[in-house]
């Protein structure tokens, strides 16, 4: 351990001996790393978990001005059917007022580049420390920007789900989604 080479015998050629020692040690280290991998990989999402990682949501029952929360990959997803006024308000905000500048247009585009500004789809997890913001249900406080308000540390989001005030660093995350028909959206 501390001084292995001094205790080994002096009979064989030291160069050959050192080479053999180092080569064996290296091979052993490779083996140890290869053994470690399945143990780590074991904790990754399993095949059945991955197979459930997309959901389909029917948009028909959601009236203008209403919002629903659905569970996707164990997290809440906010789907808001925005009013004309809310869309206008979101589009009118100058980029300079946003801590995390992003156009409203970009946040309502699906993976096939289809833009439907009336549907705002976001993961309902505050980007500060992971609480679920209020504002998705009628009667919830919506914060001073008319969007969402996180009760944990007071972050306020606007009608596009962008951070406007408070400790959260980023806008609410928009997941990948695709409108498979007029009334159906596939998330994930």
């Amino acid at each position: 351990m501390a001084s292995s080479s001094t205790t080994a015998n002096g009979h064989s050629d030291p160069t050959r001996r050192d080479f053999l020692m180092v080569a064996t040690g290296a091979l052993g280290a490779v083996g140890a790393a290869a053994v470690a991998w399945p143990f780590i990989n074991n904790l990754n999402p399993a095949a059945d978990t991955l197979a459930l990682s997309t959901i389909e949501v029917n948009l028909q029952p959601i009236a203008v001005g209403q919002a629903v929360t659905v569970k996707w990959r164990g997290k809440p997803v906010f789907i808001r059917h925005r009013t004309e006024a809310e869309i206008k308000e979101a589009e009118a905000v100058p980029m300079s007022q946003l801590p995390d500048p992003e156009t409203d247009n970009k946040r309502v585009t699906d993976t096939a580049k289809k833009v439907r500004p009336e549907w705002l789809i976001m993961i309902g997890v505050c980007t500060h420390l992971g609480c679920v913001p209020l504002g998705n249900k009628a009667g919830d406080p919506k914060g001073e920007f008319g969007g969402w308000f996180c009760p944990c540390h007071g972050s306020s989001y606007d009608t596009s789900g962008r951070i406007r005030k408070g400790p959260a660093p980023k806008n609410l995350v928009v997941p990948d989604y695709l409108f498979t028909s007029d009334a159906l959206v596939r998330i994930g």
């Binding site: 991998w37 399945p38 143990f39 990989n41 074991n42 990754n44 399993a46 095949a47 059945d48 978990t49």
Partner: peptide, 13 residues
């Protein structure tokens, strides 16, 4: 059985 089938390298462990 899920460990065997679905968990990554679960069968090995």
């Amino acid at each position: 059985e899920r460990i065997d089938r679905d968990v990554p390298q679960g069968w090995l462990i």
